[in-house]
């Protein structure tokens, strides 16, 4: 072994380890990849939020690209992303909501006060549908394609940046796919 290789080896190993750890520093451990991506969306059928006698179910999504947003009034991140949802709705994105473990009156008041970007909200009082969708912290947002397959999951508040780089391009692409 030439001498310079012998002396450089520890330095190279150190740099490799440092690079690995540096990358780890910037990863967000809260963003757990969902096993549901690429799989059929879990079936559900729940009473509507605004009108408890109606039913909101997965069948309502069928045939169209849909954004499914899990939210609650006790969730501060949901308040933060709400204006972004309003703009998405204005841009013509179909948004359904899952009001997760919430108080019905609080949620209705929230929609009156901040605006309602949702076509309809399913009221998941027990959180059972949330479990089926692998929800572990609101807000979470899924993109479901025409065929009812989950294509994307966004964890945490939707940002303008996420809309521009990921969400809108994907929705446009899925709309073009004639499934």
């Amino acid at each position: 072994m030439p001498a310079f290789v012998r002396y450089l080896t520890p330095l190279v190993l150190f740099l490799a380890l440092a690079g690995l750890l540096y990358k780890g520093l910037n990863l967000n451990p809260r963003e757990v990849p969902s096993p549901l991506i690429g799989k059929p969306a879990p079936e559900f059928s729940l009473p509507g939020l605004e009108e408890p006698l109606t039913t909101v179910s997965l069948d309502d999504f069928r045939g169209e690209v849909t954004l499914f947003n899990v939210w609650a009034t006790w969730c501060s991140g949901c308040r933060a992303e709400h204006p972004v949802l309003m703009r998405l709705a204005e841009a013509g994105v179909r948004i359904y909501g899952l009001d997760y473990k919430d108080d019905r009156n609080d949620a209705k008041r929230w929609l009156l006060r901040y605006g309602n970007p949702y076509i309809a909200n399913a009221f998941d009082e027990s959180g059972k549908v949330g479990i089926d969708w692998g929800v572990y912290g609101t807000p979470e947002t899924f993109i479901v394609d025409r065929n009812g397959i989950i294509r994307y999951k966004h964890i945490g508040p939707i940002t303008i940046d996420a809309v521009n780089t990921k969400i809108m391009p994907l929705i446009e692409q899925l709309k073009e796919d004639k499934g």
Partner: peptide
């Protein structure tokens, strides 16, 4: 649990 939340 794994089918909903993954191996994590």
């Amino acid at each position: 649990l794994v089918s909903r939340y993954g191996d994590f």
